[in-house]
Design a protein around this nucleic acid. Sequence first.
RNA 1: GCUGCUGUGGCUCAAUGGCAGAGCAUCUCACUCGUAAUGAGAAGGUUGUCAGUUCGAUUCUGACCAGCAGCUCCA
Length: 586
Amino acid sequence: MAEENNQYTFENEQYRKTYWHTCSHVMAQAVKRLWPEVKLAIGPSIDEGWYYDMDAPFAFTPEHLEQIEAEMRKICKEKLKLERFELPRAEARKFMEDKGEPFKVELIDDLPEDATISFYKQGEFTDLCAGPHLDSTGRIKGNALKLTACNAAYWRGDSSRETLQRIYGIAFPKKDELDAYLARIEEAKKRDHRKLGKELGLFMLRDEGPGFPFFLPKGMVLKNTLLDYWRQVHKKYGYVEISTPIMLNRQLWERSGHWDHYKDNMYTTVIDDVDFAIKPMNCPGGMLVYASEPHSYKELPLRVGEIGLVHRHELSGALHGLFRVRCFNQDDAHVFMTRDQMQDVIQETVRLFDEVYSVFGLSYTIELSTMPEDHIGTVEEWEKNQDILKKAITAMGKDFVINEGDGAFYGPKLDFHLADSLGRTWQCGTIQLDSQLPERFELEYTGEDGQKHRPVMIHRVVLGSIERFIGVITEHFAGAFPAWLAPVQVKVCTITDRADNYAKAVAKELDAAGFRVETDLRNEKIGKKIREATMEKVPYMLVVGDRDIENKTVSVRHRSGEDLGAMSLADFTAKLKAEVDSKEIK
RNA sequence: GCUGCUGUGGCUCAAUGGCAGAGCAUCUCACUCGUAAUGAGAAGGUUGUCAGUUCGAUUCUGACCAGCAGCUCCA
C-alpha cells in the first residue's frame, strides 16, 4: 500500500494507480453532490488515469465535466480523510440497498456468501472498494487533474445490459505534467493517419462505401513499394505465391467451418440459385490449392503466400480509418508441415517477423490466444498446439502474455502487437496453428514410409492487413516515410523559369535511375516551394537556379530543414541510392 | 449494433428563422525572385439526404445516411 512504503511518486506504479483510484472516488463523490439521483457502477484506475461508470438520467456533456472538475477541486481542498471499514456481505448489501445503489448491490451479490466487504468513507461519501486509497483527498493536486471525456459503456461490458455513462479523467502530481500529457495527446492527433492520409493524398473514404478504402496515387505507390519489399523478403524465406478467388460457393465455406462460425460477418449472394460468399479469409482457397495435387514429405514445409483481398462485414460503429475496415488485403501465407517441423517453422516465422518489423523501427509485444468457447477440434489437440507455440516462443527468449479464450475457432495463435511512436499498440502480425482445416479438407502428403499422412499448418500474416499496416506506419513516421517508401522521393524546385529545362533534365535523370521524382516549375518563390514540399514530407528537395546551371550542381535540402549544400547530381544520386538501399530511417 | 456529438465550396473553418462568408487550393494577370507562404483579380455552395413546422428553413422537429469519441465486436 502506498501509505506503507511512503513512495509518494508516480515512478512508483502502485502509488500512481492508487492516486488515480482515489481520484475516481473523488469524481464519484463530486457527481453525487451535484446530482444525487445518479447511480454509481464501477470506477477503476486504468493505464492512463481512471474512469467511473454511472447511470445518469441524462448524458454528460463537456459543460457537466467542468462542473464536476470544479467540485473535485473543492473536495481536494477539503482534505477529507479516507477511512476504511468492513462489513459482512449481508450488511454490506443492505447498506448499498438503503443508499439506492442497484449496481453496487449487484456487485456484492456476485461475491461469495462469507465475504467481508471493505468500504472507504471520505466525508459524506462512502463507496464500496477493495482499495488501496490515499489517506486524504488533500493529497490530490486539484489543478493537475482533468476530466478528458464522457462516453457510453455497457454495464459489465455486456451489450445486452444497461448503457451507462462513463467519465474519463487523468491527474498528475504537478500541473506541468498534466500540460505535458495534454500536449502529447495533441501531438498524437497531428499524427492521426486519417488526417495525414487526407493531407498527403494517400487514401480516402466515401459515404458510398463505408469501411471500403480508396487508395489514391500516392497511397498506391506506398502500398506497391511495401508489397515489393514483402515479396523480396518472402522469396528469401522460401515462399511461393498464389492468388485465390474472391468469391467461392457455400459448400466450401461449410466445409471450412466459416459458414457456421463466421456467417454474420460474411457478404453473401446467390448466383444461379447457389449461395456464394465473398471470402473473409484466404485459407479455404489455399486448402484447395494444396489439395489439387499430391505432395511428398520432401516438399515440406511448403510455404505458400497470398496477398488476398478479404471482405468482412464489421459493425458500423467499429470502423476506424484504415485501422478497422470492411475490405482489406492480408499478406497471408499458409505453411504446410509435418508435426515434427512445427516448432522450427514457428521460430523461422518469428525470425521473418523480426526482420520485417526492424526495417520499420517497430517493436512489438506478443499475445498467446487460447481456446475460445466456440471452437472446433478436441481440447487435447488445442492444448498440444498451445504448448508448441509456448515452447517455440520461449526457446527464442521472447516474452508473451496470455489472452485467454481469444484464439481463432480452428486453433491457438500468437498475435504481434506493434507499438507506434506514441506507445499505442495495434495488432498486426499473427501466427495461427491449425490442425483442423487439414482434417476437414483431408489434406495429405506421402511420408518416407510410403504411407499417406496428414500435415498440420500455420496461417500467418506479418503486416496483418496492408491497410492497417499503412495506417500504423503513417502514424509511426508522422507521414515522413523513409526515403525507400516515400511516395515522392525528390522534388526539384526551380528558382526562376530560366532553370526549367535544367530542372526537367535533372528530374529525367533521377527518374531514369529509378527514383520517384517531381518537379515544381510553378511561378512561385523558392520559399513557398520549399514550404510546400516540406509539408508534403518529400525527403529531398533539389533547389536549382542560375548558380546550379552554371556549376552543374543541385542544391540539396532535406525535409528536416537541413541544408546539405550544392553537389553534383551524380553525388546526390549515389547518396540517395545508398539511403534507399539500406532502408535507412531518417 | 449501442450512447452522445458532428455534417456549410476541393481543404480548414465562420455566420444566420429573411439574398451564405473568410483563408488556403484552383484559374487569370503582374512580379523572375537562392531555402517554410509575392501581390491583384476571377471563378467556385440547392448548407449530408428525405420529410415536417413556417409567409419564408441552411438555421427549428423527425427519420435516414455518413463521420467522430467510447462501449461491444475483431480470424
